[in-house]
Amino acid sequence: MSTLSICNLHASIGDKPILRGLTLEIPKGQVHAIMGKNGSGKSTLAKVMAGHPDYTVTSGDVLLDGESILAMEPDQRARLGLFLAFQYPMEIPGVTIANFIRAAVQSRLPQGEELEATDYYADLYSKMDALSIPRAFTSRSVNEGFSGGEKKRCEILQMAMLQPKYAVLDETDSGLDIDALKIVSSGVNALRSPEVGMLVITHYQRLLDYIIPDKVHVMAEGKIVLSGEKDLALKLESEGYDWVTAS
């Protein structure tokens, strides 16, 4: 039961089908990678799981530890333990990172329970240090004027603070130079535990040098067309995707 299960998922935007019968199971404690060409539906999968209002699920299901989440609002899914690290994190002018994450942590507490400010800041600062995020960041507006690397580190910081059961990382490596990639990867690796399942969506094999997956899946035309061990990523890197879809 401790899995994030995607069962024969079909989803469309408008009347255009994007996911066409995708099945995938991510047990807690494992890291799965999804690779695929642009347009294969990778990012759509992430958004559909998180409950983005633009997409309609036409059939199939997504079960988080056995419970269907498709009827839930995005925030309910999040509080249940699903985290999405965005490919393009949104800017929220005037809202500081410290206040934003605090509101998110507070939303997980039982009604009437107040987050203790000193505990919160102690936790926040230690996690920022681990991700090499300067303290001054806490008073900056969420993602406003951030570099690509800063945005992604901020996503991982949020993930560290919110301690999800399942995390989906959508193209977390995009826009990162090699130093930022190493910092972000080590941040992600630090969160690997028997209590967390992760789905890493990426276009390039490079990220998987740093975040070593337990399984690699190839996505094409809205479904998983091939699954394998981590060396599958290397083969895709050297031989491209065409042999997969051709077979």
Partner: peptide
């Protein structure tokens, strides 16, 4: 923006308020 904040656990109203 609202979707992003909701994905962090904030209700739609709380997300609006924050924005």
């Amino acid at each position: 923006q609202i979707f992003y904040m909701q994905q962090r656990g904030l209700s739609e109203a709380a997300a609006m308020s924050l924005a």
